[in-house]
Design a protein around this nucleic acid. Structure first.
Lengths: 203, 203
DNA sequence: CAGTTTTCCGACACTCATGTCGGTTAGGGT
DNA sequence: ACCCTAACCGACATGAGTGTCGGAAAACTG
């Protein structure tokens, strides 16, 4: 009557993929401290100690998942930003690409960019590096728009503006995860319009 | 040669204030799971079990600190938004008020609005309520500007725009905490300009 | 100054976490 | 068919964290 234990045995890379997928979900949901390796193991359908056969520690597991998701994000938006077109079109397509990444597996974005705590030094450093690289990419994309606005992209004020836009996008993505019925196109349209026209475009 | 233990003994409310102040710092820095009552007790200069004489559990301590900081925030920005003036001036003064709150004890903002994890149901609910009340206040402030932009403030797209602005402000505040040498006026100016004029204001 | 309240603390019980080690067995190469 | 690598797991050691309890003593009250 018991379920039979003829467990099928995976090879290293496949098992590691299953584990990182499970870890992604749990870390994104509970945060680093809140997540337990037991829970990740259950989610991966494996005994807890198996994790130690593939990753030396909890921290390195998180780091591996973060690297994985970061390259996935880079590839995703890098593959679908249209280089040509008007400045507004480029802005819109970049925003759309980011929301599209959120749409396919929201855990990745949450893991990389939500929750700022994490006292651990190494994790903080890696996360910081990922943030900075994203900020650099955004700055490059927005450079000429900011010049047109009369702002030197190398000034601190430009850094603040870029940070505002990035954080705003993340905030909308979070909001979207709470209300998933909103269509992506509407969010892209709203953010683009607000950002491009500004609130004072009235008269 | 040892330090003498003539400990001065506080009355209830005073001790509770010391504890919540310590808890604010530690919770904001480490998050809920990452923080330990031992560390909070050390920071408050008291034995760990004293916390249980004033708060029934770790969770309720966090909730108390959150409520405290939320009312502090409400009072702070409520006291210094100029009701009159042009729409742009109102926007600027609200942004300035929020950054001013961050400037005086940044832990409050972090505790209330950073890190989205927290699996605990009750904590999540309370945090959600605080977020929503903030979003409502912001929507009320921005309502006529959005009307002028041709957006009904009750539509979902307006909700997304408000969320964008709020999250953007938080992002700039985070960035500011990492580079505190930037003057507040510059940040207020940059965000206001970007938000009011928009990126497409070029020609 | 005596009595009572209330603040404070040391020691304990319990749970749950990470990380280790040795044994077991599936599954592929020869 | 056999072996041997490596995937898998149960049991253990260790540490840290939460919450409880009874007692000591400061400070307020009469």
């Amino acid at each position: 009557m018991d379920e039979k234990p003829p467990r099928t045995r995976m090879r290293g890379p496949a098992r590691r993929a299953v584990i990182t997928a499970a870890a992604l979900e749990v870390f994104a949901k509970k945060g680093y401290h809140g997540a337990s390796l037991s829970e990740i193991a259950v989610q991966a359908g494996v005994a807890r100690t198996v994790l130690y056969d593939h990753f030396p520690s909890k921290r390195s597991l998180l780091l591996a998942v973060m690297q994985e998701q970061n390259t996935a994000l880079m590839r995703h938006v890098g593959a679908r930003i249209a280089g040509a077109g008007s400045a507004e079109a480029r802005l819109r397509s970049t925003i759309d690409a980011y929301f599209s990444f959120t749409e396919t597996g929201s855990a990745g974005r949450r893991l990389l960019f939500d929750h700022v705590d994490e006292d651990d030094a190494e994790i903080r450093t890696v996360r910081q590096g990922i943030r900075e690289s994203r900020a650099r990419a955004a700055t490059a994309l927005l450079a000429e728009d900011m010049c047109a606005l009369g702002v030197d992209p190398r000034e601190p004020i430009a850094e603040a503006m870029v940070e505002f836009i990035i954080a705003g996008l993340d905030g909308v993505a979070q909001c979207w995860e709470r209300n998933p019925e909103m269509p992506r196109s509407m969010l892209v349209e709203g953010v683009t319009r607000l950002l491009w026209s500004g609130l004072g475009r009235a008269e």
